[in-house]
Design a protein around this nucleic acid. Structure first.
Length: 595
RNA sequence: GAUCCCAUAGCUCAGCUGGAUAGAGCAACGGUUUUCUAAACCGUAGGCCUUUGGUUCGAAUCCAAAUGGGAUCACCA
């Protein structure tokens, strides 16, 4: 039982004993820093029960708690606010309990619930871009958070490897590629395929123009341009399993996968499973049949099948076209069912942009209406678009901010800044490269994850590569500073061997604050897991690092004269280091040992 | 036309399960180092929390409407 629960419990007891009234729940909140105290109870709501003035009620409760709860050392009352002071010895004992223990328990209990997290979900006709980066970082971080919170997490991805888009790249490559390969060109595979996607677009547009010059209307020109005809023809051949088309498709997708793998590796993310739409696009018929049998789905006169959601405030949604082929929704229904059969998840998180809010609302509703119990565990982790400042980064037709370019810029900037600060001395080339990557990617990841997922975010290239203030490098720097402190201390004496704890040392206000921050780790983790929000972790770890930074400046540690204080401060610093590493690790960010 | 999301300092964002004087970072200005590594710390300045109404002892926070911004409403994915 934690201290809040104990206090709540005792407060309920107090109401019973003082006023003969039973209350269900009591919530303490953090005391506003401008007042003395750690936890505060607002008593306005209970005046009807006490039938006394706010001050009087608060004082009576305060007296009861002070007398009956050992940890309560004092209290004060201001208007209807009862501020409770928790004894330093409680915090010191708490610190003693957690010292040397990991913040995150990596061994899961037998009965840990299984959660599937989907993210990335790229198309195979072009490289990853800025939008994918936010998606991937969010999904990966949520996976880590859920895992740390005691779930068995299965990271998964759906690859959109079929359709007109990849046929466009294939056609363009056949016509203009002259057999170019990643090996022959030295280009990353996904970029090579993307290049032909852009080439298709360019030639397609000029075809449209020339048709329009012949007096053909825009719509007709778009539909009848020879290149588009060829792409559509290729898609039909693909669906008919044409040997040549399938072969080229396999080769070009293979290039893209190699490219993606490299990007994922640099980004430091991975997956436990991958679903390919070429395998799943026909799924969902099973659900359709069962839905028809249950009378949930209906057939129109033209044989198309739909579900009527108008009573739920939504529209009619078609699930099978009149020619019997399936649509996006059908495929998602089928994939959800397949995944549930395969991994038997309790929760399934879809990391997909908010432009698909409606799609997922409908998807989940249909599955619920179909009676699948697991449909209640489905969640759309919806995130806002990444916007760019106007006029920037739009120079190249057909490309937005490329993920690989972006990572390179971040790493290069980290290298330049590190060198400028003269911090590369004594590092081997490999060590330096790893450091630049840790800092550069850390900055990028933190920049994207510190913002509430559902909000759209502005990506300003100039500001995002800032390494000062509320950034990952600042947090990493504080971790590094702690490590330096620990290294220095070992030269003089081994504090580890003297882990004798003195619970009656004087605790500085900042030290108490830091211990409370450590104490809050578990609550923050639970909340982040419940809300699927890496931003909460980002805020937590920044606060912790900032508090430590202030503490470090105002408090001597190794220069302190009392040995027991040196010991305690080193132990505190060490524990904060572990907390920083654990927390920021939940964002997929590493910490260097030196920087 | 309908539905959904967003609106807090010049900029980027916290705070939103109602509480006491709304917080950070960046940018601006001024300080701190013969060092437990300054990618740091301290200070100054900067706010009608979009507007209007409602609920409440109490509203940035909850409700309603308005305004502004974004998204969605295919037998596309």
């Amino acid at each position: 039982m934690n201290i809040e629960q104990k206090l709540s419990h005792k407060t309920i007891e107090a109401f019973q004993s003082l006023y003969g009234h039973t209350i269900d729940a009591i919530a303490f909140e953090k005391t506003n820093p401008i007042f003395v105290g750690d936890l505060t109870l607002v008593v306005f709501n209970f005046l009807k029960i006490s039938k006394k003035k706010p001050e009087e009620t608060a004082t009576e409760i305060g007296n009861y708690l002070k007398a009956n709860v050992a940890e309560v050392s004092d209290f004060n009352v201001i208007k209807g606010f009862l501020n409770i002071v928790i004894a330093d010895s409680f915090w010191l004992n708490y610190f003693k309990d957690i010292y040397g223990k990991p913040f995150i328990n990596h061994t899961l209990p037998e009965n840990a619930p299984t959660v599937m997290v989907e993210y990335a979900s790229p198309n195979t006709n072009k490289p990853l871009h800025l939008g994918h980066v936010r998606n991937i970082l969010l999904g990966y971080s949520v996976s880590k958070i859920l895992s740390a919170a005691g779930n068995k997490v299965v990271k998964t991805s759906v690859v959109n490897d079929r359709g007109i888009h990849i046929c466009k790249s294939m056609i363009a490559w056949k016509k203009f590629g002259n057999g170019e390969t990643p090996e022959s060109s030295g280009m990353k595979g996904d970029h090579l395929v993307g290049k032909y996607y852009v080439a298709f677009d360019k030639h397609y547009k000029s075809e449209i123009e020339s048709l329009k010059n012949k007096g053909i209307g825009e719509e007709e020109a778009k539909a009848n341009a020879p290149l588009m005809k060829e792409a559509q023809d290729m898609l039909r051949k693909w669906e008919a399993n044409d040997k040549d088309v399938r072969e080229l498709w396999t080769i070009m997708n293979g290039w893209v996968y190699e490219g993606f793998a490299e990007s994922y590796k640099t980004l430091g993310v991975d997956f436990d499973s991958t679903y390919y739409e070429s395998n799943t696009y026909l799924l969902g018929k099973e659900i359709i049949d069962s839905g028809l049998a249950k009378g949930i789905l209906k057939t129109r006169e033209d044989k198309s099948i739909f579900i009527d959601l108008t009573s739920d405030g939504l529209d009619e949604k078609t699930l099978l076209r009149s020619d019997g082929t399936s649509v996006y929704m059908t495929q998602d229904l089928g994939t959800a069912l397949l995944r549930n059969q395969e991994v038997n998840f309790e929760k399934m998180i879809y990391t997909v942009g908010n432009e698909q809010d409606y799609h997922f609302k409908v998807l989940f509703l249909i599955l619920k209406k179909m009676g699948y119990a697991w449909a209640d565990g489905l969640f759309h982790l919806s995130y806002g678009m990444v916007e760019l400042p106007e006029g920037k980064m739009k120079s190249r037709e057909g490309t937005v901010v490329d993920a690989d370019d972006l990572m390179k810029v971040m790493i290069d900037t980290a290298a330049a800044t590190t060198k400028e600060l003269g911090k590369v001395e004594g590092l081997t080339e490999d060590e330096a490269a790893h450091l630049f990557q840790t800092i550069g990617l850390g900055a990028l990841k933190y920049f994207m994850l510190k913002v509430d997922p559902k909000k759209k975010m502005l990506f300003n290239p100039a500001e995002s590569i800032d390494f000062n203030g509320n950034t990952a490098p600042f947090i990493q720097f504080n971790y590094v500073r702690i490590q330096a402190l620990l290294r220095k201390s070992i030269e003089g004496w081994n504090f580890e061997d003297q882990a004798i704890f003195t619970p009656n040392i004087p605790l500085l206000p900042k030290e108490k604050e830091l211990i409370i921050k450590l104490y809050n780790f578990n609550a923050t983790l639970s909340q982040a897991a419940a809300e699927f929000s890496p931003a909460l972790i980002a805020n937590y770890v920044y606060d912790l690092a900032k508090e430590f930074s202030q503490y470090y400046h105002e408090t001597p540690i190794l220069k302190e004269e009392r040995k027991d204080l040196i010991l305690f401060r080193l132990q505190l610093a060490k524990t904060i280091g572990i907390a920083i590493k654990s927390s920021i690790g939940l964002l997929g960010i590493e910490v260097p040992e030196r920087m």
